[in-house]
Amino acid sequence: MDEVLDEALVKDHKPAWKGGDQPYEASYGKLMMWFFLITDTLTFSAFLAAYGFSRFKYPDIWPNPEDVFSHFPFLHGEHPLLFVALMTFILIMSSVTMVLAVNYGHKMQKKKVILWLSLTIVGGAIFLGSQAWEWGHFIHGDKGGINTQTEHVVHIAEGEKLSSVYALMGADGHDGNHHHYTVDQVITSLEANPQYNIRKANRMYLTNEDAITYLRENASEVLLGANLKNNEYGHPLFADYFFFITGFHGFHVFSGVILLIIILINVIKGTYERRGHYEMVEKVGLYWHFVDLVWVFVFTFFYLV
């Protein structure tokens, strides 16, 4: 029995694939990374396709992304798309530093691999921080909304321009306090401030009187911020997809940063120098570029389209 085991062990220590036996001219590890990435591609495709399904089901009441993601840290006013554009830039930049690390790995230049790998980790960390800010902002909310019995979220407007529940109630949404309003309070405020009205979920503006009638008949609660059950931006599914898709992608970035830290430690220790090649950097690089690739699609389908 022991002899059989020994023999198996000896066999296992031989390289599994050598030159002539490499049908793809790629090593076992690289090939398996590619196969994993194919399965992950299908997972993300399914998420985004499901998002498209829901959007095609509720096209009239689905929120406009530019009304939702319109803020930039430390800047006031509406800046749609700018922050996600910055996040995209950071991720593309970290992909570039990753290719540079892989390239210097081919040339066996340890110090340069350490430099570019470290910068890639910094890029990944900045991206994760940006995403945390984005989530925080999304959860806290900005304009507030009013839910109806049919889950058509309506928004406070001033004429033909979106305003906010906070403006109507004379409060500052970002003063750090926890705000809570009832439908009756909002209706009373609308009666007292006739310059305000509402925009229905299908983006039709109502006059002040019509708005009060509509809210009396349909409104169920005032929504401030977002969670998995409902959100101020629109249909509950919108926030569900946002948390799920960007969360799953963020989890990939987080895993990628952990992998990068592990291989950076190995590079510093000289593990790959002794092994004679930096293929591990290349394999983690494949994963890192894939994460960038997924973000390119998330950026398009969640923020642009």
Binding site: S45, A50, F56, K57, P59
Partner: peptide, 15 residues
């Protein structure tokens, strides 16, 4: 994409 978007179109709810 074809299956899901196609089904999404026919579940379309007119407001």
């Amino acid at each position: 994409l074809f299956i899901l978007l196609n089904e999404g179109l026919y579940t379309y709810l007119k407001i």
